[in-house]
């Protein structure tokens, strides 16, 4: 409250506070309160029965499992790309850099139909994989692929700036002291970038959990096998089962809020450490 009583030099505090609070209440809090309202029509037992319905449980498993696989794959792929983009000069580098944002710029539904077409059995890539018995479209592999596609920028764009800030001298010091390249990477570079790598992977994971447009076309949406949780909400809505949809949504919302909070706390902790406790 000390901060409130201090005289402010810059104008616009009440105006911006007023507008922000009004906006946040109308756009964010009011709709979220309607979820609580809808849930209050259910008894605990009904609520529990909905969220532990076997088909819904199967969808949680599919969603979490594929999102985990996609974000781990992206941790490796994203680290490689961030490294190559920061450390090396080569023709086409700027195009490669710009391409990293494609999944953010491309509408997810477009990504979805494109991947589904490419990887279906008659598709350009699916056709090549089919003789080896590899099926991507309409299996969980396809879901992983779609999730990985839409979330790759998170890892690249989180690791890239940290890698850029690393002074070249520490490489030299490590190598001069006789460390091998691999050893120096593990013991000198990794300790600096892993908080960013974890943050980026966490963001990719959160995004993958909620991804809808890119996934539903390639998933095949078979009950108990390739249904993701976002789709379950859409299915319940199509049946006008608003309470059911709201119950599943509350699980999704709780998990995403928890992840968001965890990522923010994680970031704040490392920001403090990097800035000598001043953050």
């Amino acid at each position: 409250m000390i901060a409130l009583s201090r005289k402010r030099v810059l104008p616009g505090f009440s105006l911006s506070l007023g507008i922000t609070l009004l906006y946040v209440s109308l756009i964010l809090l009011l709709p979220m309160s309607s979820l609580v309202g809808q849930l209050s029509t259910l008894s605990w037992e009904q609520y529990w029965n909905i969220i532990t319905d076997p088909r819904h449980i199967a969808s949680y498993k599919v969603t979490v499992g594929t999102a985990l696989a996609a974000s781990l794959a992206n941790a490796v792929f994203g680290l490689l790309l961030a490294w190559v983009l920061v450390r090396y000069e080569f023709p086409g580098k700027r195009i490669l850099d710009a391409l990293m944002d494609l999944p953010f710029a491309l509408p997810t539904a477009v990504a979805g139909i494109t991947l589904a077409t490419l990887y279906s059995q008659n598709g350009a890539i699916g056709e090549l994989l089919a003789p080896y018995g590899i099926e991507v479209a309409y299996t969980w592999v396809g879901i992983v692929l779609a999730m990985a596609f839409t979330s790759i920028p998170f890892v690249v764009r989180t690791v890239q700036p940290v890698l850029e800030d690393l002074p070249g001298q520490i490489d030299e010091a490590a190598l001069t002291l006789g460390a091998s390249n691999g050893y120096a990477f593990r013991r000198v570079i990794m300790p600096h970038i892993w908080p960013a790598l974890v943050t980026g992977t966490g963001l990719a994971f959160a995004r993958s959990l909620g991804e809808y447009g890119a996934v539903i076309f390639i998933a095949g949406n078979m009950p108990y096998k390739t249904e993701i949780t976002s789709l379950m909400i859409a299915v319940r809505l199509e049946e006008y089962d608003y309470a059911g949809a709201a119950a599943i949504a509350s699980v999704v919302l709780a998990v995403s809020l928890f992840l968001l909070l965890a990522i923010n706390i994680w970031q704040a902790r490392f920001y403090k450490r990097l800035h000598g406790g001043r953050g």
Binding site: T20, V24, L28, L29, L30, P31, M32, S33, S34, L35, G37, Q38, A206, L209, G210, E211, Y212, G213, T229, S230, L231, I233, A234, L237, Y242, A245, A246, A249, V252, L253, S256, L257, L259, L260, L261, N264
Partner: peptide
């Protein structure tokens, strides 16, 4: 406030649609 603003980033767009449907749809109080 800053964490609140990040919610749309973290939440599935389907859930976002549902929240509005529950509020402004026929059954919603608004």
């Amino acid at each position: 406030l800053q964490t609140l603003i990040d919610i749309p980033f973290a939440v599935s767009p389907v859930v976002a649609g549902l929240l509005y449907l529950l509020l402004y749809g026929r059954g919603g109080w608004l």
